[in-house]
Design a protein around this nucleic acid. Structure first.
Lengths: 206, 206
DNA sequence: CATGCTAACTTAACACCGTTAGTTGAACCA
DNA sequence: TGGTTCAACTAACGGTGTTAAGTTAGCATG
């Protein structure tokens, strides 16, 4: 059945279906054949729209990153960083199964360059020396990526016993699992606050 | 040639060879057949010593984590955290290609539990409330994992132009690449210092 | 000392993977 | 109307992790 009257596939549709599978079955759960089946099409048809699986995943990742907000540096560097970091983390927390892909390399996600410029510009405008502005951007990214990677919701419960002993609001393992998202967000917010406090002290002193 | 006089394989030997391949050719460069060939053996022979590739990689990761040092909390919480974080990061920086595997999930790396206890205990002994001690541990891990994941040496040069403009000691892209390790370490140390400064302020106040 | 069991390898094969080649016929432009 | 291009198809290639079945060395037991 060649060249249908109206095209069966589109890049956006492929991305959406791919992300659905990733969210539901994990990154390893996505294969080109399974994706094609979900779209009612044969696997090689996908290669007309994307040259490679890697490119497709790059695009999916870029789409997720579109939601990251770097626009708040007008309200001060602290607010700008907070908004950036929180929206960045939220975007990853919404699709945690994409994180292992992000860990594989930078890919073709060109939009990040624009963002890096916005962040750096905002920090420099607020009085940070350029070299430190760069490191602040990198550091914040570290926090976000690390939080996304080591999150409890993703199963990183190494320290589950420690949590059970010390996190007074949680009764047992079952409830910990239930509140994993909260624990994750609390720890991330804590890390971010401590980091920003350290920055503020450095900027105010010489 | 069945049941050789002296065994050809051992778990330690398999791990060592696997890590060698990962270091040299990346995580995707490791296949059971290639690993077997490097050991002068057929692929299914490996399954006598490891039930699955996943288990093997878990073991390799655990071995790397053995080098992490959590013993310095006797010299104060700041020194303890610094030593832990630096040795943790160093261990990952030595084998950056394992990081994408770490991002895939927690695995069977049971040694981390002991470490989590040591860290938490050290922090509590130094006067941190248990709940905050837990979050400090998580936050530090975020920094280390994020730094390992988003490192410049691993190709995350999104902001390469920004770096070129602002990092005065670097002349051009070639030299940036050359000094990627230094840039990584600088940013990590900066993040860690700011975080610890924020912590110190919090502990000294109320 | 013979017998049987287990250990540690072998080769063959399965199901799946990403991807390429070659084919088909509708849609579009001259 | 004719030719080209597009968007799908089926078939197939080389690779993957893993399982099954075969072979024999080493060891324990009668």
């Amino acid at each position: 059945m060649p060249r249908p009257t109206t095209p069966l596939l589109s890049q956006a549709g492929i991305r959406a279906s791919a992300l659905e599978i990733i969210d539901r079955e994990g990154l390893d759960g996505l294969s080109m054949r399974k994706l094609a089946a979900a779209l009612g099409v044969s696997a090689p048809a996908l290669y007309f729209h994307y040259p490679t699986k890697e490119h497709l995943l790059d695009d999916v990742a870029s789409e997720i990153m579109e939601k990251v907000d770097v626009s708040a540096f007008g309200h001060g560097w602290r607010e700008g960083l907070l908004t950036w970091a929180r929206s960045y983390r939220a975007a990853l927390a919404e699709h945690p199964n994409i994180v292992p892909f992000l860990a594989r390399g930078p890919g073709q996600r060109d939009a990040s360059l624009r963002r890096a410029d916005a962040i750096h510009g905002g920090l420099v405008a607020a009085g940070w020396p350029p070299r430190e502005a760069t490191m602040i951007g990198a550091s914040t990214k570290y926090l976000v990526l690390g939080a996304a990677m080591g999150s409890f919701s993703r199963g990183f419960v190494d320290d589950v016993q420690v949590y059970l002993d010390r996190y007074p609001s949680l009764g047992d393992a079952h409830r910990l699992r239930e509140h994993a998202d909260t624990v994750d967000r609390d720890s991330f917010e804590f890390a971010l606050t401590m980091f920003l406090d350290g920055l503020a002290a450095r900027l105010s002193k010489p």
